[in-house]
Amino acid sequence: MASGIAFGVVYLVYQPFNAWITEVFKGPALPVTIVTFIFCIVVSLLTPPSTHTEEERVALVMAERNQEKTASVR
């Protein structure tokens, strides 16, 4: 997500990059898709895997909504 935002900002701020992306890809949608996808996969593989079950993740969401302490979820 951050990589997509960073890409978008660079695309808008740095004109030569903007011109190149527009000429080659006709817009930022396709390159942002590729960049974000790659970052998403790489970052996920470099970080510890998910540890919560579906029920636990729902409980974490609801705890966050109600601003409760989440240590008791697991």
């Binding site: 997509g4 998403c40 998910s50």
Partner: peptide, 24 residues
Amino acid sequence: NVIGSFTPGMAVALLVGRFWKRTT
């Protein structure tokens, strides 16, 4: 314009998160 540029990133993150349990 920034939103237009990063919405694809948000969408990819949503799709990967939905279908790949290993995603973090």
